[in-house]
Design a protein around this nucleic acid. Structure first.
Length: 511
RNA sequence: GGGGCCGUAGCUCAGUGGUAGAGCAUCUGCCUUUUAAGCAGAGGGUCGUUGGUUCGAUCCCAACCGGCCUCACCA
């Protein structure tokens, strides 16, 4: 089938799919064209926005003429006069349209619907019932809507509680048609405005300290920097399979080798793993590397940074997340991983063999597999039993060396590395370490990973010879950090699903 | 991948082994300060898809598609 035929059949199915509501609106659109209107105009001069008008209105001030534009979201026609609300990027405002005032445009208005985008010029006034509104002098249709939006009605009772009638609540529709969700559910917009503030305030915090924002490859010949399965893609001209990055780490450290003393990147990583309410296949990661610093210094920085982000985004250091109140005021608890396991389970895992660890895991109904090394078993015990209990921001420090192949050996505790994870609301929010900069040690750690891979661990890291070559030239002592921006946003906006902080969460394709 | 729940009008939902109903939205009429506007009337559905059982399926059964929750896996 050629493209032309495709287009024809697409058009046929489009026409068949039309329901009564859409057909009616297309008929109205034709009617408006006959009246000489262009239903899809090119521009409109807007000089005010809804919330500014509402906030600055004074009953005793001189009359003020404004020009606003937005989408019709409610409509009350009363014969020769009508009220409607339009929604613009900041909020809603009511319009009052009277036939005697706008003349023929009132007949045009009769052909308009919920969802149409209009521009109005008029006088700000207060109605009998007290709502600040715009008394229209002119009305322009800017874009006709031919597909009916869900109609969500609200009522604010005397206590100021907002009641929502007929909410648009089907999660599948909300995620697949986020544009509708955003039009109809204003709190969704708020979440994403906050998300932008999270990213903005992180960036400002790091820029102020002189760290350089950089970009590194998404398409990588060798993936690395984390334990995860990658997506594979194919480059046609090179006839070579590339991996979508699972982390920025190894490239950012190459830049530290190159002499930058502080670099960071905020970008998408991709992991080819299960999806649930805290995992999306593509997600946003902040990574930061600072020379001549260690993980202790990094803990101080993370406390300051997230505290400042919380202040910027929520206006305070205390944040309500579900049933919990989380307080980001520094300092936060710092406890070693093994101590935290001992505190919660009573088990001392220090110096235990792989078999002993497996037995302890089994005792606490934590599943382990044969391919797991000692490090992975400890991690399984930790994530299964301890992690969910950590609600207040807590630094878990000093991880087993086997599960941290890129982290530097602990300066005083054999078998451990200088690594911390920030836990909050039962999830990992950040991961950081004193970076391993000994090229020979790094090589042997990669070799250990290769052995795990041979045992069937699909997430074990692969040897990156170019990265080793970089380390061989010499990398200064460095502290490195990764923060999941989506999860940080979840905490700061009180959303329990990552899908609620990503505009277009991954879904199976329709049909 | 396992288990549970779900898919009925544009939206939110009810319902029945004899091809369906409500509220809002839509349409017609009335209405020049309404606000979940109101009053009177009307139209609108391949009941997720495909099979099976049955005289007959939207309902019972199976598979599939999609979603949510949960466990597993996983940052």
């Amino acid at each position: 089938m050629n493209e032309h035929q495709d287009n024809i059949s697409d058009r046929e199915s489009f026409e068949q799919e039309q329901n009564e509501l859409t057909k009616r609106r297309i008929a109205e659109l034709e009617e408006l064209k006959k009246l000489g209107l262009n239903p899809y105009t090119y521009s409109f001069d807007v000089d005010s926005c809804s919330t500014d008008i509402l906030q600055t209105f004074k009953d005793d001030a001189p009359q003020r003429e404004v020009s606003v534009a937005g989408r019709i979201v409610s409509l009350r026609r009363m014969g020769k006069a009508s009220f409607c609300h339009i929604r613009d990027s900041k909020g809603k405002i009511q319009l009052y349209l009277k036939r005697d005032d706008i003349g023929p445009a009132y007949d045009h208005f009769k052909l308009m619907d919920l969802g149409d985008i209009i521009g109005v010029r008029g006088i700000v006034f207060r109605t009998k019932t007290g709502e600040v509104s715009i008394h229209a002098k002119s009305l322009d249709l800017l874009a006709k809507s031919i597909r009916p939006l869900p109609v969500v009605k609200e009522k604010v009772d005397e206590q100021g509680n907002k009641m929502v009638y007929d909410p648009f609540s089907d999660k599948e529709l909300r995620y697949r048609q986020r544009y509708v969700d955003l039009v109809v559910n204003p709190d969704v917009r708020e979440v994403f405005v906050k998300r932008a503030k999270v990213v903005g305030s992180v960036r400002r915090f790091l820029d102020e300290r002189g760290y350089l924002e950089v970009e590194t490859p998404v398409l990588q010949p060798i993936y690395g920097g984390a334990a995860a399965r990658p997506f594979i893609t194919h480059h046609n001209a090179l006839d070579f399979d590339f991996y979508l990055r699972i982390s920025d780490e190894l490239y950012l450290k190459r830049l530290i080798v190159g002499g930058f003393e502080g670099v960071y990147e905020i970008s998408k990583d991709f992991r080819n793993e299960g999806m649930d309410k805290s995992h999306n296949p593509e997600f946003t990661m902040l990574e930061l590397y600072v020379s001549y610093k260690d993980y202790n210094w990094m803990m101080d920085l993370v406390e300051k940074m997230i505290h400042s982000v919380a202040l910027t985004v929520t206006g305070g250091a205390r944040v309500k997340v579900g049933e919990n109140g989380i307080d980001f005021t520094p300092p936060w608890k710092r406890i070693t991983m093994l101590d935290s396991i001992r505190e919660i389970t009573g088990e001392d895992l220090a110096g235990k063999s792989e078999d002993e660890l497996a037995a302890i895991a089994k005792k606490h109904r934590v599943e382990v597999e044969r391919s797991m090394g000692a490090g992975k078993i400890i991690d399984a015990i930790f994530s299964g039993l301890v992690e969910p209990m950590l609600i207040q921001p807590t630094f878990i420090t000093d991880y087993p060396i086997e599960m941290s192949p890129l982290a530097k050996r602990h300066r005083s505790k054999p078998g451990l590395v200088e690594r911390f994870e920030l836990m909050c609301n039962g999830h990992e929010l950040a991961n950081a370490f004193s970076e391993l900069n000994d090229p020979l040690d790094q090589r042997s750690r990669f070799e250990d990973q290769a052995k795990l891979k041979a045992r069937g661990d699909e997430e074990a890291m692969v040897i990156d010879e170019d990265f080793l070559r970089a380390l061989e030239y010499g990398m200064p002592p460095t502290a490195g950090l990764g923060i999941g921006i989506d999860r940080l946003t979840m905490v700061l906006t009180d959303r329990e699903s990552i899908r609620d902080v990503i505009f277009f969460p991954q879904m199976k394709p329709e049909k």
